[in-house]
Design a protein around this nucleic acid. Structure first.
Lengths: 231, 231
DNA sequence: CGCGGCTTTGATGTTCATCAAGTAAAGTGG
DNA sequence: CCACTTTACTTGATGAACATCAAAGCCGCG
C-alpha cells in the first residue's frame, strides 16, 4: 500500500462521468481536495471488516474481491469487482464499520474520498443523491441476482458460469489468467476446492477448455454457455 | 385490493418516525397529498415483476413475501417482510420496472406514495436522501447476509433457522400459525417441499416441535438454536 | 533444504433431489 | 350442497450429486 502523488484532478479523470459527471465545479473541487490515490499490490487488504469506514473508495485500476471472513480458511467471496463497479457502495451508508473485507487480486489503484465530504455533497445535491441511490441499488440487485443464479445451478453449471464471467465481464477474451486460486473459485461459487479442480479437469478432458496453470483457454465457449444454462 | 378512505395524515402515523421523522411540514404535506392507503387480501399480488414502478410502497400492516417468479411453480422467495421493513426500497431506484413480485401473506395495508413525489423530496432534502440510503443499504445487507447464512447450512439447520425466524422476528412467540405453505418454505430456504415436510416430521418425532396443520409450537427452542448453529 | 500452501486424483459415504403413490383439504361448477 | 378437480401435504424407496477424507506431487519462500 502506497499513497501516490496526486497529480490528477477529478475533473480530468476518465471515470468522472460515471459518478461525478453532473456535479458543479465547486463540489467537484471540494471532493478533489480530500481525494487521495492509493496503490495496493496484489494480495494486499484494502479494507477489513469490522474497521471503521472513513472514506468512500473508488476503484480506478485493477481487480478486487469482496468477501466475508470465516474461520478456518473458508471465506465467502461475495463478488469480484473491477473499475466501474461501485464496490465501496456496499453498506457504506448503513454501518459505521465495514461489513465486508476487500482485497486486491491484481495491483490496484483506488481513489479514496473522505466519507464526510461525500455525505456533505450528497446532502446538498439532490440529483447526486438520486444517482448514488441508483448505483447502489443496481449494485446490490446485481449481486443478489448473481447469488441466486449460482445457487440454483449444479456444480458443472457453476464452473461454466464463472469461466464465462471472467471471459465476458472481466477480460473480454477467450483466454485469460484466472486471477484467483482454485480455493477462491470455490469460495466464490459455493463448492469445495476439490470439486472445482475435478470439474475443470473434466472440461479439459472434454476439450471444452485448455488449462495451463492459471492460464485458461475457452476452446468451446458455446458449450460452456449451454452447460451454464442447463444448470 | 381496495383503496381505503384516507382518514389518516402522515403526520399522525405511528410509523412516521421510521422514515419521515425529520421532514419539514411542507414536504410531509406534499407526500401526504399523493398518498393512498390500499388494502390487499391474503394471497393478492401487490406488485408484479416487469410492471412499471409508479409508487413507493410502505407496509403499514400485515405480512408480505418478496419473490422472483420461475417457470413451473418453483418461485424463489427472497424475503418475508413485515411493517417496519422497507420492502419497496429494493430496486425502486435502479429500475423503472419491478425486479421482484410482492404478494400478501396476510391481509395487508400498504401506503402508496407517488414515486415522483418521493424523488422530489429526496432531491431537495439531503438529510432525507442520506436516510433513505441508510435504510436501503441496511435492507440489502440484511437480505444478503441471510441468504449466505441459509445457504451454508444443511437442511435441518435451514428448517431450524426459519422456525426461529418466525418465532423471534415475526411473531415473538413460541407458538404461531405459519403464514406460508410447505412449498413456500421450500422456496424461501432453497430445498424441496418433500424435505421440508420430512424434516418438520423429524423434529416432531423428536419432540422439538409440535405440529397441528399450520399451527407450530416450539417445544424446545434451545435445541432448535443449536441445530441452527451447527448447520 | 524443508515447510506450508496450492493443486490434483481417487475412494468412500452422506446428503439431498427425484420419483412414485396415496391421503387430506380446499376451491369450482352444476 | 355435492360431485369433481385441483392443490397441499405426507411417506417411502432409489439413485445422483456432492462433501469429506486421504495421499501425493508441485512450487515458492525463508
Amino acid at each position: 500500500m502506497r499513497e501516490l502523488p496526486s497529480l490528477n484532478h477529478c475533473s480530468t479523470c476518465v471515470y468522472k462521468n460515471l459518478l461525478f459527471g453532473n456535479l458543479n465545479t465547486e463540489d467537484l473541487n471540494f471532493l478533489n481536495e480530500s481525494k487521495k490515490e492509493i496503490e495496493f499490490k496484489k494480495g494486499e487488504i484494502i479494507s477489513e471488516e469490522g474497521t471503521e469506514i472513513t472514506s468512500f473508495l473508488y476503484l480506478k485500476q485493477g481487480l478486487v474481491k469482496l468477501y466475508k471472513k470465516n474461520p478456518l480458511h473458508k471465506d465467502q467471496i461475495i463478488s469480484i469487482a473491477k473499475p466501474r463497479d461501485f464496490v465501496s457502495l456496499l453498506s457504506i451508508f448503513s454501518e459505521s464499520t465495514y461489513k465486508y473485507s476487500i482485497s486486491a487480486l491484481e495491483d490496484t489503484i483506488v481513489c479514496s474520498v473522505d466519507i464526510k465530504a461525500m455525505k456533505d455533497v450528497i446532502s446538498r445535491d439532490g440529483k447526486f443523491a438520486i444517482e448514488i441511490l441508483n448505483k447502489m441499488s443496481k449494485m446490490y440487485d446485481d449481486i443478489l441476482e448473481t447469488r441466486f443464479e449460482i445457487n440454483k445451478k449444479h456444480l458443472r453449471g457453476r464452473i461454466a458460469y464463472i469461466l464465462l464471467y471472467f471471459s465476458n465481464h472481466i477480460y473480454q477474451s477467450d483466454e485469460f489468467d484466472i486471477p484467483i486460486s482454485r480455493r477462491e473459485i470455490a469460495e466464490l461459487i459455493e463448492m469445495t476446492t476439490e470439486n472445482v479442480i475435478r470439474i475443470l479437469s473434466e472440461f479439459r478432458k472434454d476439450s471444452i477448455i485448455k488449462i495451463d496453470g492459471k492460464k485458461i483457454y475457452l476452446l468451446e465457449p458455446e458449450r460452456l454457455e449451454s452447460i451454464c444454462k442447463l444448470g
